[in-house]
Design a protein around this nucleic acid. Structure first.
Lengths: 206, 206, 206, 206
DNA sequence: TATGAATGAGGTTTCATTCAT
DNA sequence: AATGAATGAAACCTCATTCAT
């Protein structure tokens, strides 16, 4: 499942446009124009707009095999592992925010004929790994036993994405102007905030 | 700005379809057919598809004036107010999840010519009210002084919406089948979880 | 099931073009251009090219309720009825040869998604009427009992259509130049020939 | 004009697809895929889709040199020769029904740029042979002098093809299920019927 | 000889909107 | 106020053919 240069050009152009205009809001013609590639090549390479998105998923998610295992198997303390995990996860999501935005939007469209199996599979594996880690921490007496494990990831990702989807609002509210300032804010404010709430959740006994 | 019966029929049909198929994925023809109203009336009443969405915002958000003030001004303790606030906010959002989904998706589309002033105004007022409440709590020694106030709302809403946007995934993961089961989960699992993380954040001293 | 003037214009243009170029060989754009009607109106009126053909069938075949009954119930002798029947049938087919050509070609295309129920129904009724007439003639001792009744209609129609489909060849062979000469040949040569073979078949005892 | 293995593979695949989907309904890509041959080879070998059909005509019709002469020159009686001739002709046509179907359909499309010279030449020779045979029979007093000689072949072929083009209808009407049943019907019902009408025509004096 | 990539034209259908009544 | 008809643009996709290797 390898893509040649032109295919990659198409995929990356599509990723940008889908993220900016939505899937329905992006025409194949627009992609072909921005990618400077004959419009017929998109059907030729990918078959259809839907299948183009599936290929894009494959292209992006395929490299998403987790560093999660490495962190959990490492020598850090439980708390340090939480920090490392949140750090890694949010940075990854931030780096690939465009494809995740597309997925978030289109995954909830039940009328769309798109194969999300790989995405779901990936997501489920992550969930299990996290759940096991938390369970071990609870048995070791390090983590609060009264927590909803399944909602940890929605808390992390949801917080990030709500910030990202409302970027226009928060950049105005927080006097952020450039894209690099956004990156700075994510690294030095948002990620610490998420670490803080997750650690508070895991260790705070009511 | 009052709407007659036919206009309301159109608005509520559009809300459902926009939430299900997205803005671009919903055709004016589809709305007119589902609402059982002549297609020309939509342009006649609202001017354009974009302005229909703006009217929908007005129709839904206008009734969104906050009960927040009442909670904050009440006689509860700081902690009890946090509980009451999260409870009210998530229930409101859950009830109006369709229009918020639309807004979330379209607000991040910078190429869309839609007037989101009312939405932004509303959001800003909420932020200020919350910020003041937290500040008072910190000064009263009830809340942790080292927190990112601006990220409280993204944490609450983001967690909810990430759950909602991935409903298909979580209903499978959690063995939730009916819509009323989803409501139950939100009330008895998700809202308590959010309360827990917000209270942990506000009161846990690292 | 009535058609307005524009719809009729489209139907008759389509009939001509389908007969001349085939169904696949005729583009919706071509029809719209020849009919001097906006291309979108064709989808608007008929839904699709396939459904346009179905409407055309309805438009043409609907008026095809048979004079057959009248002939058979009449006061003529059996032989005279055969003459009258062949005469009527071939003239009708000749008049509507274009739609029948289209049907003949597309009916044998099993991959085409077209509803031929009306056509089949009509054809079956004709068959039964003929079969009964012949049976009566046989019982009355007027017709040869050893004949394949089902193949009478294929003989009549097949002979006509093979002539029509190879018109180019026969006009050259027979030195026929104008369209009216073709009509003359059909009336004064082809129809008598068919009458002759059918009567020979029905009355000749080997 | 010899064809190599790949060319023959293409020709036979095209013959099947043209017969099933029509000429316009068959894409070069479809032929190349079914024939498991690179798409560019079709243009390379045959020049164009039209010329591919011409080559197909050549490939099929070329082997169509007549056994007719042998029958007519034989020792049979006039009537026996008619039987043998109809038998031979319909069996040949039935065996090569696909290419004849294509020709019948495309020959009547005057906008198609296809060279049908070979087909017409062949057809004309057959006509002359038949006409001479009938003339001799008439002079010998064996055949009815008052017949339309030119319409004999349309009667034979037309009857067969009308049955074949409406195969779906007749298989339903006659409770024919399998392809071999069709072959049986042609041999034991249709051919005798055609023999009967031709002999009746030729020998029956009104 | 053979191939996969590439092209420009054209296919059908649907779009949001406006017109005429 | 309300309607069905009409419009031109644009949507996605496939076409037969040719190019470069």
């Amino acid at each position: 499942m390898t893509f040649n240069d032109k295919q990659i050009k198409i995929l990356e152009t599509a990723e940008r446009l889908f993220a900016e205009h939505g899937f329905d809001g992006t025409s194949v013609r627009h992609i072909s124009k921005d990618a400077e590639i004959n419009i017929a090549m998109i059907s030729y390479y990918f078959g259809s707009k839907e299948k183009l998105l599936e290929s894009l998923l494959l292209y992006r998610i395929s490299g998403f095999g987790l560093e999660l295992e490495n962190i959990i198997k490492g020598d850090l303390s439980y708390i340090e592992k939480v920090d490392a995990f949140v750090d890694m996860l949010v940075k990854r999501i931030h780096k690939n925010r465009r494809i995740h935005k597309i997925v978030n939007f289109e995954y909830s469209n039940q009328f769309r004929q798109i194969n999300f199996e790989g995405y779901e599979q990936n997501k489920k594996e992550n969930f299990n790994t996290i759940a096991n880690f938390v369970k071990n921490g609870q048995e070791a007496g390090e983590f609060n036993p009264n927590i909803n494990v399944q909602m940890i990831i929605p808390t992390i990702l949801g917080t990030y994405f709500h910030f990202y989807y409302n970027k226009q609002f928060y950049t105005s509210l927080l006097n952020i102007n450039s894209n690099s300032d956004v990156d700075q804010y994510v690294e030095h404010q948002l990620i610490p905030h998420i670490k803080q709430i997750i650690k508070a959740l895991l260790t705070y006994e009511k």
